[in-house]
Design a protein around this nucleic acid. Sequence first.
DNA 1: CGCCAGGCTTCTA
DNA 2: TAGAAGCATGGC
Length: 274
Amino acid sequence: MNVDYIKKSDNISVARDCFDAALSVDCGQSFRWKKVGENEICGIAFGKSLRFVQNEETVTFLGVSDEEFVEIWVPYFDLNRDYSAICERLKADAYLGKAVEEFRGIRILRQDSWEAICSFIISQNNNIPRIKGIIDRLCETLGNPIDGGFSFPSAEKIAQSGIDSLAPLRAGFRAKYIIDAAEKIASGEVDLQKIALAPLDEGRDELIKIKGVGEKVAQCSLLYGFGKVDAFPVDVWVKRIMAELYPDGLPECANGVRGIAQQYLFHWYRIHSK
DNA sequence: CGCCAGGCTTCTA
DNA sequence: TAGAAGCATGGC
């Protein structure tokens, strides 16, 4: 399956069918996107800054070449996956059906592996505004300046810089975990390429070698950083969802895409419990 | 002041 | 192997 898109001057537009970019970048998967206008959002991923606008019908990527769109943003927004078919399948379950109906455009963001690991280490026992602040300061402190912000610093750069360089982040007890992750990944002791190719359980076993990475952070990394859509992060919210709605486990229709199901349920449940 | 935030490590029995 | 304390920081 290949995405259809329309190119006009420097902009690329994609139909909103099963694609809500604004919601996807703001439902707890990524922490690097900011609203800059009514329907306008900016962010940085894979060392590229992006500004996009969306209306009822389309998402428009501003100032993006065909190459950049195809190589970076199509995989990032998971645009070659048939979410329409997945959503249909998830409707076999009543709660998933409601979640999918209400938040149909959510996509699982295929983020940089290292950025996802590091971001979800930072997320532990923390709240979203503060997670964003710590990550912003990490990028400002050790990332490279890009048009409109800073790139996410590499594991090598963080490992070389050492824990004292993380003081400005005010990350608390997480700073030592960030360093351990950076060191193990920079040295190859934890091999991201191998995890990308390995079955879920093997990837998970590799990731939890990092201090500060437990079951939940490992599953988030696999889901958002390796595109493993069957990874299943269980945080406090999903724990509540499982206890209340699925005491016998997720329904069968979620098999193979449990991470996607999780994302719809997570967002749906949080919205309705506020 | 206390409680909580997309948890994890360490200590204890 | 299960359960609880401790962890840094900031918003409420």
